[in-house]
Computed example of a mutant assay.
Amino acid sequence: MPTLYGMPSTAAMAPHILLREIGRPFDLVLLDRGKGEHKSAAYLALNPHGRVPTLVDGDLVLYEAAAICLHLADLYPEAKLAPAVGTPERAEFYKWLIYLTNSVQAEMLLYFYPERHVEGAEAQAAFQAASEARLNGHFDGLDRALAGRTWLLGDTYSAADPYLFMLCRWTRFMGRPARTLANLGPYLARVLERPAVKASFEAEGLDAPYY
């Protein structure tokens, strides 16, 4: 039985939701950041970067949220979390998932951790403001892409949707949360209505505002 290691409201959220969408048994291990469990010798033996998520399934030890999402979509094709390989729809799925992790998520790490890049409160505030402006541009583009669509790929829910939902959740305390945009707002409400998403939030002990 697979085991997903994560922390509440982190990059583990997307694969956590997917595991619940799939509906197969799995174990969820929520590490305690305050106790430094993600830096313990036992966890570093699984993920030498000391970050979440990590999926352990038999001999397979896999980290990086997008990689786990792709693996789960391929491992359980009956869940229909990704279009068929070799189709134009699959190519679009790749485009969105890679964009979300390489462009949007990477920018969010800059926003949340300016101290890793510049020194001094004033410089960090300016760095964060510039990052937030770039994030606003990303979410404006995603909002436009969702016009007339139920899900990111159109009428079909896919692994890209919980990934986008996760990133939008991280904007909830920013100056302009993703939920305030014309298409993203209703989209996020639709994602939250899915039983797998509700169950994931309950398991992670998360309260409103959900996004």
Rank of each mutant, 00 (worst) to 15 (best):
L164M: 08
Y99T: 12
A84L: 09
T180L: 12
L135A: 14
A147V: 00
M174I: 00
A41Q: 12
I17Q: 03
L181F: 09
H16A: 07
V56K: 13
G86R: 04
A145N: 07
A182W: 01
R20N: 14
L184Y: 01
Y76E: 07
L184Q: 03
L4P: 06
L60A: 12
E119H: 06
F93H: 15
F201V: 06
G36L: 07
L184M: 07
R144V: 06
G141Q: 09
L153F: 01
G148F: 02
A182P: 07
Q124T: 00
K35A: 15
L164V: 04
L135T: 06
A178L: 07
R179W: 08
L46S: 12
E92H: 15
A126S: 14
A160R: 01
I68W: 10
L188R: 02
F26K: 08
G148T: 05
S200K: 03
R190M: 02
A121H: 02
L75E: 11
P15N: 08
L110G: 09
L206Y: 01
H38M: 13
A84C: 03
P83S: 05
R149K: 15
G6M: 04
A160G: 04
W151L: 10
E89S: 13
L70G: 11
A12K: 01
D161Y: 00
T150C: 10
T101S: 13
L4S: 06
L46M: 14
R90L: 01
V118H: 07
V85M: 14
L19Q: 04
L181A: 12
Y111C: 06
H117P: 01
A145T: 03
K35G: 15
A73V: 00
G86T: 01
A84T: 11
M174D: 11
R33Y: 14
V52H: 11
A199E: 04
D57Q: 14
L72N: 05
K80M: 10
G175D: 13
P114I: 00
A178S: 15
T156W: 11
G205P: 08
G205I: 00
L46I: 11
T156L: 08
E115R: 13
G36R: 11
P162F: 04
A11W: 00
P88A: 05
S200G: 07
